[in-house]
Simulated scan of single mutants.
Amino acid sequence: MTPLVQLRQATKRFPNGRGGLHTAIRDVDLDIGAGEFVAVVGPTGCGKSTTLSLISGLQPPSAGTVTVGGDQVQGIPGGVGYMFQSDAMLPWRSVLANVAAGPVWRGLGKDEARRRARDWIARVGLDGFENYYMHQLSGGMRKRVALAQTLVNEPSILLMDEPFSALDVQTRALMQQELLRLWAGSGAAVVFVTHDLEEAIVLADRVVVMTASPARVKATFDVRLTRPREVEDLRTTTGFIEIYREIWSSLSAEVDIARKGQTRAA
């Protein structure tokens, strides 16, 4: 079967502000199937988020190809949902209005958009908070709104760029569990960028390790842990510890390379 998402020799360069070019990612090959949860890890600043930008169509590749559903990406593909590290919500709108906005922009009638929004607000555990505003919500509640805002459009591809990194440890674990619950059975492919290797393992079917900048795919690891998963319980199992050690042996070398590069630059 043709992968839902496919990158071939994907390269992205940006102006570096000094008249030259900075290569963020180079010759990236990556396949992602429908319904697959793939986590991408690598050193800080290596280009993980750039990979999401290419898949989403927000940035075109400088070289190579990116295809979604067998078609080369030229603009934002249909069926893509993007959850950023920072909230992408309008503070002057209520929870209900923020979640309903996507379906309305896609041409759905206002009443149906609000019906779907109420359904997803309830699914993420915020029933009764429809008329609240963003400043009235905790960080974890805002992330639940962001999940509803993204999933209400029923994306076939869900791109997530460190969505839980700003949360405290307990709230983060709750949101990881909530994401697994909402994703299960959806058939959506997830590409999840994170700095947290534990988070990558508890969530993903595969973990992709990127090299220090410019990022390339160094290695891919299958996470053979049964689903459904209990996030907190999983971290203490022998299987989790073994896969963590295996991936860290690959990732740590790239983290060291990046750290030494930053020291020289300083």
Rank of each mutant, 00 (worst) to 15 (best):
P3C: 13
P3A: 12
L4N: 00
V5T: 04
Q9M: 15
P15A: 08
G17W: 10
G19H: 09
G19L: 03
G19Y: 07
H22R: 10
H22W: 05
R26A: 15
D27H: 11
D29L: 14
L30A: 07
I32A: 06
G33H: 09
E36L: 15
V38Q: 02
V41A: 09
G42Q: 08
G42C: 08
G42L: 06
T44V: 03
T44F: 00
T44I: 01
G47Y: 04
K48N: 08
T51P: 04
T51F: 04
T51K: 02
S56L: 14
G57F: 02
L58A: 13
Q59C: 14
Q59R: 06
P60Q: 06
P60S: 10
V66F: 14
V68W: 00
G69T: 01
Q72L: 13
Q72Y: 11
V73A: 03
G75K: 07
I76C: 06
P77W: 08
P77F: 13
G78Q: 10
G78V: 08
G78A: 08
G79F: 00
G81W: 01
Y82E: 03
Q85N: 12
D87F: 11
A88G: 06
M89S: 11
L90M: 14
R93G: 03
N98M: 09
V99M: 02
A100W: 02
A101R: 09
G102H: 05
P103M: 07
V104G: 13
W105F: 07
G107S: 05
G107E: 03
L108D: 09
E112S: 12
A113D: 02
A113E: 01
A113F: 05
A113R: 02
A117R: 01
D119H: 12
W120A: 02
L126W: 04
E130L: 03
N131H: 11
N131Q: 11
Y133Q: 03
H135S: 14
Q136W: 12
L137M: 15
S138G: 09
G139E: 12
G140Y: 13
M141E: 07
M141Y: 14
K143F: 15
V145K: 09
L147H: 13
L147D: 15
A148F: 00
L151F: 09
N153F: 00
E154M: 02
P155I: 01
L158W: 04
L159F: 07
D161L: 06
E162T: 04
E162Q: 11
P163L: 02
A166F: 10
A166P: 12
V169L: 05
R172W: 06
R172M: 07
L174K: 11
L174P: 01
M175A: 12
M175G: 08
E178S: 13
A184C: 08
S186H: 02
A188E: 01
V191M: 06
D196C: 01
A200D: 05
I201V: 15
V202P: 02
L203E: 07
A204S: 11
V207Q: 06
V208C: 14
V208L: 07
V209M: 14
A212W: 03
V217D: 14
K218T: 07
K218P: 05
D222V: 05
D222M: 09
D222R: 08
D222H: 06
V223E: 06
V223S: 05
P228L: 15
R229E: 10
R229T: 03
E230G: 10
E232M: 08
T237D: 05
F240P: 00
E242Y: 00
W248R: 13
W248V: 14
S250H: 13
S252L: 00
V255W: 04
D256I: 11
G261Q: 11
Q262T: 15
R264V: 04
A265H: 12
